[in-house]
Structures are given as C-alpha cells and as structure tokens.
Nucleic acid binder design. Sequence first.
DNA 1: GCAAAAAACTTGCATACGCAAGCATTATGA
DNA 2: TCATAATGCTTGCGTATGCAAGTTTTTTGC
Lengths: 149, 149
Amino acid sequence: MTTIETTNALRLLQAADEFCAGLGGEFSAVHGISVNEFLMLLHLDRAASNRLPRVDLGKRMHVSASTITRMAAPMEKTGLLAKESDARDARLSFVVITQTGKQKLSEVFATFEKRAQYLFDDRCSTEELEQLSALLRRIAPKALGTLTA
Amino acid sequence: MTTIETTNALRLLQAADEFCAGLGGEFSAVHGISVNEFLMLLHLDRAASNRLPRVDLGKRMHVSASTITRMAAPMEKTGLLAKESDARDARLSFVVITQTGKQKLSEVFATFEKRAQYLFDDRCSTEELEQLSALLRRIAPKALGTLTA
DNA sequence: GCAAAAAACTTGCATACGCAAGCATTATGA
DNA sequence: TCATAATGCTTGCGTATGCAAGTTTTTTGC
C-alpha cells in the first residue's frame, strides 16, 4: 500500500523529468543553450542588481560551486554574463547578467512559455491551474531561490 | 507579464529539483544508490515479468540506451539485476530485477516514502493531496512509463 | 592583535551521460 | 529470395558535474 504522498512525489518527479527532457531538446536545437544555463540566466535576472555570488547561485540551482565556475566561463566569453567583485570582501566574485544576456533570456523564455502553455493546454481549467499553483508554491524552495515570487 | 502556466511550470521544475536533491543525498548516504538507480529498479519492478528491453527502459527514464548499458552493468555484478535474452529476437536483451533487487528496492522505497511524507507534511490537507494527485496525473508521462498506474 | 577557523572560489581527478559509429539481428519490399 | 533498411545493443569520445584539495581573504576567539 502506497500513500497518496508517495504517489504525488513520484508523479512530481516524472512530470518534471518529462517536461525537462522536451525543454532541453528544443533549447539546444533552437537557442543553443541548456536548461541549466537558462535557469542560471533566470536566477540572475530575478536577483537584486542582476547579480549573485557564485556560492549563492549554486545553492539556488542545486549545483556545486565548481559547476558555477565552469558554466559561467563560456557564457562570459560570449557576453551573456560578466564578472564583478566586491569592494568590501575580496573573496566574493559576482556573476552578473548583461544586457546581451537579458536579451537572450527573453528569447529563450518565450520558448519556455510556449512549452508551459502546451503542457497544460486542454488539460486544466483556469481554476485548476490556480489550485496547482497554490499547491506547488508550498512545496517549492522556501527561503532562497524562488523563481516565482 | 507571465502566465499562470509559466509560473506552474517553473514551480514544477523547482519543486522536483529540490526534492530530488535531498533524496539523492540520503539515498547515497544510507543506501549507496543513486536516484536514477532507484528509478530503474522501480520501473523494472512495475513492468510485466519484472523485466524490460534496454531501449524501453531508457525511454521511460529519459536516458540514452548507452546509459542503461552502463548503469545496469555494476548492478548486475552486485546481483540487483540480471540479464535475459529473447528466444524469438536475438537482438533483445532484457534487464530483469532479481529478488535481491526487489529487497533492495523495498528498503530504498521506504526512505522515499518517508521523504514524500515529509514533503507534504503539514502543508497540504488530504483533500488537497487528492487534487494535486489528479492534476499531476494529467501532465505526467502519457503512454509508457507511468510509475503510478 | 594574532592565531585559528571559516568562507569564497578555483583546479585536479573521477564519474555519469549523450552522441555517433559499429556490430549483430530482424523486418521490408521489389 | 535477397538486398536494403530498420532495430537493439555496445563502445569510443567529448562534455558536464561533484568532491576534495589548495589559495586567498575574512571572521572569530582569546
């Protein structure tokens, strides 16, 4: 006998995995970007001053600090991101999203929205969408990194 | 202006990611297994005759066939899985979950259930859990690989 | 004020994964 | 029937990622 909580957790994982797989394919083909790179741009765009210390960014994305270092490097080369330092604390190295990065993000975000639309299209009423929104809100990240305010 | 569908998709990704991160940590520490290995055992346990062709298994898990080959190999060595061939089609190579694998799965599944319980605990009423279940059911994988019947 | 601990970041190494190529087997169609 | 295509699987190679160690800078405790 499995509980309703278990069933929901399994469905949550499978639904996200399925959506993510389709998303990754289109992102890669159309925009030449990965889902994680998209999420990185999004986190930075939502952050105060459009920037975050590398450690913070890693925590929000559930990846290690070294991954941030290595993911950001090529994106700095292509001008999507920039690096900034803190006058008060020389250890900190901020990752900043540039105007170019914001432009790119808006393009990729359009694809995301299209996919999101398709995910729920003809499957949920407006009322159900609101219900789902409220429920997911409760089990999403609590303190840091909430992408949906 | 972002739509409710977009918000829901973002929350879905973040909630799953958060849950998955915590799960992976405990699975690794307590059971010495990855989330994907757990899902592999689960898919096989749910499948007819407790076995699946490697290609099918890959599609259900959203990973490539080569990943299945490489993931299954060590699990065959440790006796969690076994290999079977088809008399009719010599190309097929089934992955089968053994009794040992089922035993392991039940242990890991207990941890999964505990985490699932904690995820929703004190956050959702029984009625809301049922609502969520119905909504997630609609956006979960359609044809193959539904882990939740 | 200083030594020790902590924090932020980077780099070396090991692992996990996808893609493309290759092999073996089966299905297709003329 | 037989050549061609398709399918299932594995392997080589490149990329992505985590962990642990090392460096630099800041904080803490005495």
